[in-house]
Amino acid sequence: MIANILDGIVLGLQFGLLAAGLTLVYGLGGVLNLAYGQMAVISAIVITLALSAGVPVLLAVALGLFVGGLAGLILDLTILRPVYRLRGEPRVLLSLLLTLGVSFIIDGFLNWRYPLETLSLRIPGEAVEILGVPMRRGSLIASAITLVTFAALFGFFRYTSLGRAVRSVIQDQEGARLVGIYPHRMLRLILVLSGVLAGLVAVTRSMVTPVDAQSGLSITVFALIVTVVGGLGNVAGALLAGIILGIVSVIAANLIGTYISLIILLAAAALTILIRPAGLLGVKE
């Protein structure tokens, strides 16, 4: 049981990280970015190319994250401009449809140009025992990266004035503008951040399963599900939802079987949405 829960937490942290970038952009900008998984794939391909060119691992990863952030910036400067002019549900819908188009473009290009490039950052070394359970090093390092990332995110939002400025925009855009914060600048910052987070998703995921040009859609879809279960726009909710869904998924996989476990995971997500449409930690509007 302990093994199940630990494995579940490892998977859950992955899920949580997956959702973090998506949920931030939604919470701050009312933008649902369906090209999120493709941004992760871009980072993965950049890292793969850099590694095969002989760049050291850490530098390659840094380059991948930089390109992820750049992708976010480009999205903000181009395709999202018309979206920012709308409000409410039309805004979400237009953002969703336009970024769907972006995801086609990225997917099509990457599948055409780099169909075989696959990122899998294998961490060598023996399994490490935690509470008597042997854990793979790759999963542990991925989890550590995720935890550090979340700690940094929480710290940023709680203790830095820039982070507080971002939160103030989430709470009340007009109010934030009145006290001298530019909502659009905050939004741009968050899009860059979400691109970097997408890059991190590619890195941590590739320590456990390979990431290639076809991975985009499934990353986006799972990120979306975890985001909604956690409560749109809620980073802590994303982490909580990720961990719960991870544990559910691992326990179901060990008790029953693999494909049923996916269905149980999906059913759990659907039930949460139906029972609490605002998400686990969401606040009803």
Partner: peptide, 9 residues
Amino acid sequence: YVAYGILVI
């Protein structure tokens, strides 16, 4: 798919 993406946008 690149063409479709541009078309959709």
